[in-house]
């Protein structure tokens, strides 16, 4: 099979990769399209990882700025634009989590409501969500990120390992420990 020419999209390139190649040439319209395509999943991942809306928006802005400024370095032979962008975002999220103490709006977490008709079921469900949110806020940032990439973005162990600069085996361990930690923290949670 013939390798694609440098700077050209591989045969099965995603829309994001095609747009990214235009961004690499300084195409502002392509960048706008790319932002519209990636911003929602990016914000969701950042929010799940940081548990802070304002922080997640900040990180997304920084990640897209880096995508634009470092665009000419994008190489489609080394992976899709989505994977490249997610890697930028993941690094920024981890940097931010390292720099800041965990921030958890505890009142907001406790007030999570579910608009289901059955008040008892709603209360039980809200309680579960609230305990999960509080446990998540106390989780190690890497564990939280791994859970977010696994459950939120549906990535495989190998893909998460690639995003987090580690091995699939390490990700498996990380996810296992995260789940154990979550169960323990949820059990300790004062909400009943």
């Amino acid at each position: 099979m013939e390798a694609p020419a440098p700077g050209s999209a591989p045969p099965a390139a995603t829309l994001a990769t095609v747009l990214m190649l235009r961004v690499a040439d300084g195409d502002g319209a392509a960048f706008t399209q790319l932002v519209r395509l990636l911003e929602r999943p990016a914000l969701a991942l950042a929010f799940r990882t940081l548990n802070d809306r304002a922080g997640a928006e900040d990180v997304c802005q920084q990640a897209f700025a880096r995508l634009w400024t470092h665009g000419p370095r994008f190489d489609p032979a080394r992976g899709s634009a989505e994977a490249w962008f997610r890697r930028i975002l993941v690094n920024l999220c981890l940097d931010r989590r390292r720099a800041l103490r965990p921030v958890q709006p505890l009142d907001a977490a406790a007030e999570l409501a579910d608009h289901r008709p059955d008040p008892e079921a709603a209360a039980i469900r809200a309680d579960g969500h609230a305990r999960l949110e509080m446990a998540m806020a106390r989780l190690n940032p890497r564990q939280r990120l791994a859970l977010s990439l696994f459950h939120g973005d549906g990535l495989s162990m190998a893909e998460i390992a690639d995003q987090m600069d580690t091995t699939a085996k390490a990700v498996e361990g990380l996810l296992g420990r995260a789940r154990n930690e979550l169960r323990t923290l949820m059990n300790e949670s004062p909400i009943s």
Binding site: G26, G28, F31, T32, V35, E39, R40, A42, L43, A44, F47, A56, E57, C60, Q61, F64, A65, W68, T69, H70, G71, P72, R73
Partner: peptide, 19 residues
């Protein structure tokens, strides 16, 4: 997660880092 608000115009004013 509703309402992403990336300021594209501000980003486009930044120079691209070319080799």
């Amino acid at each position: 997660v509703a309402g992403a608000s990336v300021d594209v115009a501000a980003i486009l004013t930044l120079p691209q880092h070319r080799e």
